[in-house]
Design a protein around this nucleic acid. Structure first.
Lengths: 219, 219
DNA sequence: TTAACCATTCAACATTCGTTGAATCCAATC
DNA sequence: GATTGGATTCAACGAATGTTGAATGGTTAA
């Protein structure tokens, strides 16, 4: 009984299944991928999924949670840094703390993060269980950002703040979904995978929206 | 040989299949719905799908196109009205012409439009074929709006305009996906189905973003 | 060496899937 | 009344699905 003591070094087979599943789920969605698609590419038996994750759904939840934990920790740290410098912090800095960790992961880390964000985009827009799933993994962290934004926008209406966050969430997830639609639409001027170019515009775009909606409270 | 002469009055059975499929695809995605789910609820035989639409994919494409045509016509008309009043038109009016027809349909027409937008949200965020599909049905119209925005934002960088449209698209589709996430996050302050409240904020939010990104060209 | 035990595979299960060729129904035409 | 032809159903196909109980492999502990 060794090998995985204290879940310190995760079983490489288990990790491989997760990463292949991540990529396939991101490409074709939960129902578009069979367990055999995953296990045959991983070179293991289907039954191993049940052993590790109990079910297909269990595998899906596990891989969703795995990176959510990493991402949330990095976002929380980035927010803490911003608030350490000045509290209330500029809206733009708060938004940046929310999005920068994603950009950093997507451009400099292993390519599986890219698949993960494509997966999140689909989950976020899934009417069946997307809302519940996103809430489970991300709402505790999002509340920290909402609090920071509330302080940065004194007197703002509560509903305004939440709706603006909603718009941010939509723009962010579509952006990192990398669907390549913009490539065709723009005739080559924009590239869906040019995440630096996107991020550079997303933060001021969203910040301007927040300020416009949340600070014109007189009328 | 009658009944459907000139496709004037569509076969009611065909229409029923489409509308049920619309709702189910919107809820569970293309791969989450079987033909038998659809035809059993419609009270017809599975084979009828092949007869009408040739395949499951054919049914999906047909229902996507059906409402896209309606929506595009209404958006084009709304844009025409705006430009008739003043050209270049205010950015806010152009954005409104893009989103208002959706709002109108979703709050006042039959409930199947709501399902349709939920479906579009998933398509728009699908990395596999979402970009291509959205382009096919919507890009010709979107180009009209891009042109109007270019005129309204003289000197704006081309890439800036396209990326801002991208953010609009993301915020819009998530918004109308109605995932109910915001209900839980906001603790009841916001309701995912309160489309009027959303639209009222979406237009100025996006307009402010456009102006912030596309008009600060000096620096 | 043996016993224990986790990790992995084997083999098959009961369903469900999209598709399809042939049969049937039914209203219009001759 | 017979015939035509489109609309619809019947019945079944082979393949693929998620799951699972039992068997095997391999390493550790006694």
């Amino acid at each position: 009984m060794k090998r995985d003591a204290g879940s310190k070094a995760p079983n490489p087979r288990k990790k491989r299944i997760i990463e292949i599943a991540e990529r396939l789920f991101a490409q074709r969605g939960f129902n578009g991928v069979s367990l055999r698609d995953i296990t045959s590419e991983a070179g293991v038996d289907v039954a191993l999924v049940k052993y590790y994750f109990d079910s297909k759904q269990g595998l899906f939840d596990a891989l969703l949670k795995r990176r959510a934990d990493v991402l949330n920790a990095e976002r929380a740290e980035a927010l803490k840094m911003v608030l350490q410098n000045s509290d209330p912090a500029p809206v733009e800095d708060i938004i940046n703390a929310f999005t920068q960790p994603i950009l950093t992961r997507i451009v400099s880390d292993d390519p599986s993060w890219r698949a993960y964000f494509g997966l999140l985009a689909q989950v976020n827009n899934n009417p069946e269980w997307g809302g519940k799933t996103m809430s489970r993994y991300f709402d505790p962290l999002v509340r920290q950002f909402i609090d920071a934004l509330r302080n940065a926008l004194p007197g703002a209406d509560e509903a305004d703040i939440y709706w603006c966050y909603h718009f941010l969430s939509g723009a962010l997830t579509l952006t990192f979904a990398d669907t390549r639609r913009i490539d065709a639409l723009s005739g080559g001027v924009c590239h869906s995978s040019d995440f630096e170019a996107i991020h550079q515009r997303l933060v001021p775009f969203v910040s301007a929206g927040f300020q416009n909606i949340c600070q014109n409270k007189g009328k």
